[in-house]
Amino acid sequence: MSDKSFLAPTFREYPDNRIVLSKFGDDDDLKTVACTVPGQDELERGDVIELHLHGWRSDGHTVSLTGHPQNIGVPLGILRRYRDLKVNVMYFVRRNGQPHGTSATLVIEIVS
């Protein structure tokens, strides 16, 4: 296993790392909020990213273009599970099916 360290993910629409759920409608649970994995040379086309947000993890996202940012949608319904909490967000990278590294952790606040 490689022990590469990748940059922390971001929520570009929420630069203060604070997502306010009341700004969304009650029926928006399927809407997604974009979490961005920053573009990095060590993140190559074909690598698979698995985003982890507290107890939830995304399906594998395949990197489409080396060195470019990758957006992974987090369903609003998932964020609602963690209302009024600060949660850790990070990702794991696999290359050719093998662990390749992990990211630094981002802490976001999800408020009602």
Rank of each mutant, 00 (worst) to 15 (best):
I19K: 03
I72V: 08
I49K: 10
N17I: 06
C35M: 10
S64I: 11
A34Q: 14
L65S: 14
W56I: 04
P9V: 08
P15K: 11
L51I: 13
L51C: 15
D27T: 01
S2D: 03
G25W: 05
V33G: 13
V74T: 09
R57V: 03
V37S: 07
N17C: 06
T32R: 10
L65Q: 13
N71Y: 11
S5K: 07
I49V: 13
F6V: 01
G73R: 05
C35T: 12
I72Q: 08
S64E: 07
D3F: 02
P69W: 02
L43E: 13
E42M: 10
G55R: 12
D27I: 03
R45H: 14
G39I: 12
L7P: 05
D28W: 02
D26L: 11
D29E: 12
H52S: 14
E44Y: 12
K31P: 01
P15G: 04
V37A: 05
G60T: 13
L65D: 14
A34L: 15
F11D: 00
T32E: 06
E13A: 09
T10L: 09
V48H: 13
W56E: 02
H54S: 14
S58D: 07
T66I: 06
D28R: 06
D41L: 15
S5F: 02
E13R: 01
R18M: 12
Q70D: 13
V37F: 00
F24V: 01
D41T: 15
V37W: 03
N17Y: 03
G73K: 07
G60S: 11
D47W: 01
R57F: 05
F24D: 01
I72P: 07
G46E: 03
V63Y: 00
T36S: 13
R45C: 14
F6D: 00
P15M: 02
A8I: 01
Q40L: 15
V37D: 04
R12K: 06
S58F: 08
R45M: 14
G25N: 04
N17S: 05
V48C: 08
L7K: 14
A8E: 06
I19N: 01
T36D: 12
E44S: 10
E42C: 13
P15T: 03
H61A: 10
V74N: 06
P15F: 00
K4H: 04
